[in-house]
Nucleic acid binder design. Structure first.
Lengths: 177, 177
DNA sequence: TATTGTTATACTCTATAACTATA
DNA sequence: TATAGTTATAGAGTATAACAATA
């Protein structure tokens, strides 16, 4: 059981096999090529989790951006505000570590959120190198709205892959959060 | 059943709830903050598929790059070579469409692969605007090696999330390939 | 010496627009 | 006029290195 089906990582699997139609087209005529995307076989890519995950991630981020376009908030900005909201007083290093963002990049993200009066940096009294991060009053209010829109986005995901599959996905990937 | 558990998209779920220890730390003392990443709660992010998928995708790409570092091939380069190998004669537009890559970006990817003698552009006789893409003999040979390493990477994924989970993931996301 | 926040650089990737040569 | 390939630009994101202030 454990050793079965190892080969199909690199072998073409049934569903995405190059369609017979496309094969025929090219067989008799060197010039004819498939012009429709669905006639192009993916070969080994079919068996790669990373390829599927990347395509899905692109879709999901685009839907997130689209759904929150009215409030002009991108996924990373949302994650930063959510973590600060749940852990007020956090340092920049702590946020960066928790979210896997480079601390250099977080500087710019916070600059932008601070300009928009959603987040504020407060000098720490115990360690004067670091900043305590807080949402502003407006930030708190805005985050509530962002979370509503993010929940709407999440429903789009559910519609796209199904409620049970979405939950299974969260379970499978829980270790990476 | 269909309407149950809708709220937990924005509510903190059990597993990633802010630990009592961290909450205690901050309760009596405004200055104390969680310094360890695992003491920082994620709040609404826990319920977002996009967040888990993004973190997983980062891990999986890093492992792919690491595993294929000896041959200096990145995920996108691998996907381009695999599709050309399986569909020789394809135009740049067809490859770009199939993989969801901007055609402007594919130009640079192909420049790089062509410099390395892995891929060649051949002027089409039927449509002089377009190029027929082929692997070189060396490209064919190299791709075989790349596929072996990619299969090794895929085994890392299996070790990380489990064989059954990896297969379930591929099933759930099959529609995005 | 080490760490926090910052600035800077380089490279990948996404998203556009515009140009050329064909069709 | 539309399309294939190309060039260019701008912004997000990743990966580094180096610096000042502070620990």
């Amino acid at each position: 059981m454990r050793d079965a089906g190892e080969k199909n990582v690199t072998a073409s699997a049934g569903r995405n096999e190059l369609p017979a139609r496309a094969r025929r087209k090219r067989a008799g005529n060197g010039a004819a090529r498939p012009d429709d995307a669905d006639e192009v076989g993916l070969d080994a890519l079919v068996g790669h989790a990373g390829y599927a995950v990347r395509r899905f991630q692109i879709w999901i981020f685009q839907d997130f951006v689209r759904t929150l376009a009215a409030v002009d908030i991108r996924p990373t900005q949302y994650s930063v505000m959510t973590v600060i909201g749940a852990n007020p007083g956090l340092s920049q290093m702590a946020v960066a570590k928790r979210l896997g963002i480079e601390r250099a990049r977080l500087v710019h993200l916070l600059d932008s959120l601070e300009r928009r009066k959603l987040v504020k940096r407060i000098k720490s009294k115990t360690d004067r190198r670091s900043h305590a991060l807080h949402l502003t009053a407006q930030g708190e209010l805005s985050l509530t709205k962002f979370k509503q829109l993010a929940a709407e986005h999440e429903r789009h995901v559910e519609e796209k892959i199904g409620k049970a599959n979405r939950e299974r996905l969260l379970q499978i990937l829980a270790g990476f959060t």
